[in-house]
Every structure is written in structure tokens, then in C-alpha cells.
Design a protein around this nucleic acid. Structure first.
Lengths: 123, 123
DNA sequence: GTAACTAGTTTCCTTTAGGAAACTGCACTC
DNA sequence: GAGTGCAGTTTCCTAAAGGAAACTAGTTAC
């Protein structure tokens, strides 16, 4: 029987709420391209074809869909410049920067995990 | 033009590595049930049918697959007890607890994001 | 006039995730 | 010997994600 030590992870009740939060978070981050797009646009604003070149392998259909998705969730802003022909610039919003800690922890953990997996392969 | 302030997010080069890490992390966490299972087993070790009862809506096929997956990634441990008939107990490993920070940040952000979405619906 | 660039859209297809229902084999209980 | 619980497996199906290729419509440079 486990004794209730100082808990580092939430209690059962807190877990239910926590799970809901996590599912909501993963929902907006999931898919093959979202994080890559956010990171790319945090680096610098870009036009459609610039993104397409930078993110290798993404098709225009998927890119268009993902950009719409990200815009809906307020992670990026789409601005139409009245040049001739019009150019459209996508940029990361301040809101996308609220993901900073999440990105940091995911990256940290992912790195550690990959190293662990490699380690265990060697054996 | 943005000046380069003290950067809170990684530079372009760091981003490429970071992205890889994040993709690896999301890869092992993704799917509808993984986090729920980890959270449930962190609460207490459980048998197959106990989990099935606790995690509402999961089918035995999916549960078996997810448990195998989690075991492969060393998040949970499967122990066969030589009772008659044998009982099998699943429990969270210490390694699954390395997800603590990730879970914390995802939960935090998810909560904030949901509240923001609700807010923006009201308008 | 033709090639190229702008920002996408459309169509068709494959892969993957996930689910429902039935089934397995073993042991115990009544 | 019929039913119940254990820990799954098998089969069949649907929905969603993602991709390849072609296409749109406007403009500009050669």
C-alpha cells in the first residue's frame, strides 16, 4: 500500500480536470505541421511560398489548411498587403508565445527521451 | 522591423533541433488515451479490467494496444502475478514521472487556452 | 505569347486511428 | 454443466489525416 507522500502529481480529482486541460492543449498542437509552422513564424514573418519552401514536404493544400487553423486559434496573423499583386504575410502573434513553457518542456523531455531510447537500443 | 531583443525562444538553428525533440515527444504522447492511462496508473496500479472500467469508452482492443505501447516506451510495467488464475498488474514507472513538468505545462496552458476560447465565444 | 510568380483550391487517393461486436481459453462458483 | 470473471484477440468497419497532381486567376518580365 502506498502512503500519501507529498504529492508531486495531482490527486485523483485534480487529474480529471488536468486530463481535460491536456487533451485541449494537445488538440490544438496536434497534427504533423502545427508546431513546425509556429516555430518558423516565431523566427520571422513569411509569405505562403516562403513557408512552403522552408517547411520541407508540406503540400499547398495542407499548408493552407494548417494556416487557417492556426489563425482561428489566434497563433498567427494573416495580413494582406495591397502590393500588385497582393502579397500576404503570416506572422506569429504574441499569443503563440504563451506556448513558450510548453514548447520548452516538450523539447527538453523529447530530447531526453530520444537519448534514452538510443541508449536502450545499444544494449 | 523587429530588433533582436533578449530572446525568449530559441534561435533558428536551435529551432530545428527543438522541433525534432518536440515531434519525438508528441509522438509518444499522442493518441486519444495515452495521457489518461498514464495519469490513471500514476494514481495507483491496476488490472486490465479495472482500467477498462475507469477509462470510460475505451475498447479492449485499444486498451491492449495502448498498454503495449506504453510498456515499450517504459512508461508502465506489466507484472504477472502467479495467482490462480494469473492476474496482471499494470503500474506507472518512475520514468513516467519524468513527464511531470510536461504534464504540468500542458495542463496549465490547456486550461488558459480553453478559458480564452470561451471568452472569445462570448463576444 | 509564353513562362514564372502570387496564393491558394480541387479532386482523387492512401494510410492511420479508432471503434463495435464477437470470440478465445482458462478457472472458479453454483 | 451453465454462468461469471480474467486478459485479452480477431474481424470488420468508419472517419479523419494527409498527400500528389492538376488547376485557378491575376500580374509581370522577356
Amino acid at each position: 500500500m502506498k502512503t500519501l507522500e507529498k504529492q508531486e502529481l495531482p490527486t485523483k480529482d485534480e487529474c480529471a480536470g488536468s486530463l481535460r486541460n491536456i487533451i485541449d492543449a494537445l488538440y490544438v498542437l496536434n497534427g504533423k505541421w502545427k508546431i513546425a509552422l509556429i516555430l518558423s513564424l516565431i523566427q520571422s514573418p513569411k509569405r505562403f511560398n516562403e513557408i512552403k519552401k522552408e517547411i520541407e514536404g508540406i503540400s499547398p493544400k495542407i499548408l493552407a489548411k494548417e494556416l487557417k487553423d492556426l489563425e482561428l486559434n489566434d497563433f498567427i496573423k494573416r495580413t494582406v498587403n495591397p502590393t500588385i499583386p497582393v502579397t500576404i504575410i503570416y506572422e506569429a502573434t504574441d499569443y503563440s508565445r504563451t506556448l513558450k513553457n510548453v514548447i520548452y518542456e516538450l523539447s527538453n523531455w523529447g530530447k531526453m527521451h530520444r537519448e534514452k531510447i538510443k541508449e536502450s537500443m545499444r544494449k
